[in-house]
């Protein structure tokens, strides 16, 4: 009878589970956030501080589905806030519209995509965007395999490339900025969604070149060397730094990162409070997680948009590169 007793016990539990599940109501205050892994550290830091302040009375959850995955959930109304490492695209705008989801777009920080080489690499003092294109365009696959094929001044050494995996916003942005078309890249390089794999790869191979977000370079400066970028012929070579991003000279690889807030969620007190807290504390927390903060004016403008309930995007759904902080401010002011 042992087995019988055990099974009836389980059956009762399952039945009870079913009935109680129906009764469970959502009286707790929840804020659901999902999206880009690039924006994740910023939002996580804000959520952490918010939690300290609210002493656990609001449940904040942050997921990582990537920018595209986040927008999918966002436009279905499943989440309150979407982390995005690029502006919302036309197709996603249509999806949101079809589902009746309206949103507020808030730039929260800048990121600088950083081109890195091994510290033993002595010859590469700077690189032009044209050279990056030659190196990364789809036509280079299997053909451009040595450094001197790109620039005769460089040595006859094998070229080892490391870059973002094709599902990331970083990949979209880098290909758009260098090759000229998003997602258009050679395929014969070491690709990883995990940037630490790229850091390890470049730091162990003196013929390597790779790219990833500024934070990974900032945390690994002893193992890597950042290459200054020449935006176009005649322009000076500029290395990535908070200063060169702020004054808009680090081009075209600096990019704003965003959060998108569902307008309906914003009517809930806890979401409104979280966003106010976000904008007030972003500048300090962004620096702490090694991203580049926007000027105070930008956060004030964003708070104003929230207060006035200004909806929509300032980017029109197109993929864009080389937006400076100043550009961004002008556009935000016009909204």
């Amino acid at each position: 009878m042992v087995g019988l007793a055990r099974f009836s016990g389980v059956a009762v539990t399952v039945l009870a589970a079913g009935s109680l599940l129906q009764a469970a109501s959502a009286h707790a205050q929840n804020i659901k956030i999902d999206g880009s892994s690039t924006v994740y550290p910023v939002t996580e830091a804000v959520a952490e501080e918010f939690q300290v302040k609210k002493k656990g009375s609001v449940k904040v959850t942050v997921g990582i589905s990537g920018t595209g995955g986040g927008f999918k959930k966002f436009c279905r109304g499943e989440i309150d806030i979407s982390n995005a490492s690029r502006p919302i695209l036309k197709k996603e705008m249509d999806d949101c519209k079809a589902a009746g989801v309206q949103y507020v777009e808030l730039p929260v920080a800048f990121d600088a995509l950083t081109v890195v080489v091994n510290p033993q690499n002595e010859f590469l003092k700077s690189i032009t965007v044209a050279e990056l294109k030659k190196m990364w365009e789809p036509g280079a696959q299997g053909k451009v395999t040595k450094w001197n094929q790109i620039n005769p001044a460089w040595p006859d050494a094998p070229l080892k490339l490391f870059g973002a995996g094709s599902d990331s916003g970083t990949f979209d942005y880098f290909t758009e900025a260098t090759v000229g078309k998003a997602k258009s890249s050679r395929g014969d390089y070491t690709a990883s969604e995990d940037d630490n794999v790229l850091v390890q790869g470049v730091s162990r191979d003196k013929n390597a070149l790779g790219y990833f977000g500024f934070a990974y370079y900032a945390e690994n400066q002893d193992k890597l060397k950042a290459v200054p970028i020449v935006a176009k012929d005649g322009a000076p070579a500029v290395g990535p730094s908070p200063k060169s991003v702020e004054d808009g000279t680090y081009q075209p690889l600096s990019r704003p990162i965003f959060i998108y807030v569902n307008a309906k969620s914003l009517q809930r007190a806890e979401v409104k409070e979280f966003i106010d807290f976000y904008l007030k504390n972003a500048a300090a927390l962004v620096k702490e997680v090694k991203y580049i903060a926007l000027p105070p004016k930008a956060y004030e403008l964003a708070a104003e948009h929230i207060a006035k309930g200004k909806l929509g995007t300032v980017f029109g759904g197109a993929a864009e590169v080389g937006v400076t902080i100043e550009d961004l401010l002008k556009r935000e002011a016009k909204l």
Partner: peptide, 21 residues
Amino acid sequence: AVAIFTLPSSPFRSDFPFLSL
């Protein structure tokens, strides 16, 4: 999710039926 800052609610409660799901 990846970051959660609170524990799920307790499976026990003080009033009837004492178990919360």
